[in-house]
């Protein structure tokens, strides 16, 4: 799940030049689940913009829970299903994550876009109304050593070899309401009978695998991950 939250309406309004005509695009997958850009929110955004005097040529979100970040879906929607109203627009306001924003650039052959949301993190949908971050998408998973809990994500300093001295009563120094990630890892390893894992030195991460931008070529049996750490090809046979 790509967690997103809408930008304040006033900030969005400020994006538009006088007389600029806009088409509002949502996403029926993650952004719908975040109530930041599903069909309902996209329609409502179009209405709110019109009330504030912005010319809206139309709005659309992919059908059947589709993801805006899939190029074929965005293309069908903007170049076929909503072609007429999309063509009339000077720009597109995107209510989705940043991937969806670029998908619209690709789908429209480079039309101007405006971000309607802030993309926050990739997270677990713990409840319908609560999403939280357990993975930082670093490209090199190390949770075998930590009982499945990621210290790079659960510790604000991303420490790999144990806690700093700053936690108090199991809470983090940056926020007394927040659990210390290393305390969570320690408790989890204790419950698994694997505290000994903590004695192993963890070398610095290969930040080449966390470089930007990265890409992935996927296949049913073989995939290749490209980053500044080089090409990593995995044969799943």
């Amino acid at each position: 799940m790509h967690a997103t939250i809408q930008k304040p309406l006033d900030e969005i309004i400020d994006f538009f030049k006088k007389g600029e005509k806009v088409f509002v695009v949502g996403c029926s997958n993650c952004a719908a689940k975040c109530h930041s850009g599903g069909e309902e929110e996209t329609k409502y955004m179009a209405e709110r913009l019109e009330k504030r005097g912005i010319a809206v040529t139309g709005w659309a979100a992919p059908p059947n829970g589709g993801s805006l970040c899939k190029l074929s879906i965005a293309e069908k929607m903007l170049n076929e299903d909503y072609k007429e109203s999309a063509k009339k627009a000077d720009s597109f306001l995107i209510l989705s994550c940043g991937q969806g924003i670029h998908t619209v650039i690709d789908a429209t052959g480079g039309e101007p876009v405006h971000p309607g949301c802030d993309t926050i993190f990739g997270g677990e949908t713990v409840r319908e109304d609560f999403i939280t971050e357990y993975c930082s998408l670093c490209g090199e998973c190390i949770v075998e050593m930590t009982g499945g809990l990621c210290p790079l994500t659960l510790c604000p300093k991303g420490l790999m070899n144990g806690p700093c001295g700053g936690s108090k009563d199991g809470k983090c120094e940056v926020d007394s309401e927040q659990d210390c990630g290393w305390q969570l890892i320690y408790e989890r390893l204790k419950s698994l009978g694997k505290v000994d894992l903590l004695y192993q030195y963890q070398a610095p991460k290969n930040y080449g695998r966390w470089s930007k931008p990265r890409s992935l070529v996927v296949g049913p049996k073989k995939s290749t991950f490209k980053s500044l750490a080089g090409l990593i090809t995995i044969d799943q046979d």
């Binding site: 604000p156 420490l159 790999m160 070899n161 930040y207």
Partner: peptide, 21 residues
């Protein structure tokens, strides 16, 4: 100490290494 405790709270924490490293 974390950046958040100091006077440049919007700065980027580096933490490329931890103290053991």
């Amino acid at each position: 100490d974390h950046n958040n405790l100091g006077d440049h709270q919007e700065s980027k924490g580096v933490y490329d290494l931890d103290s053991v490293q």
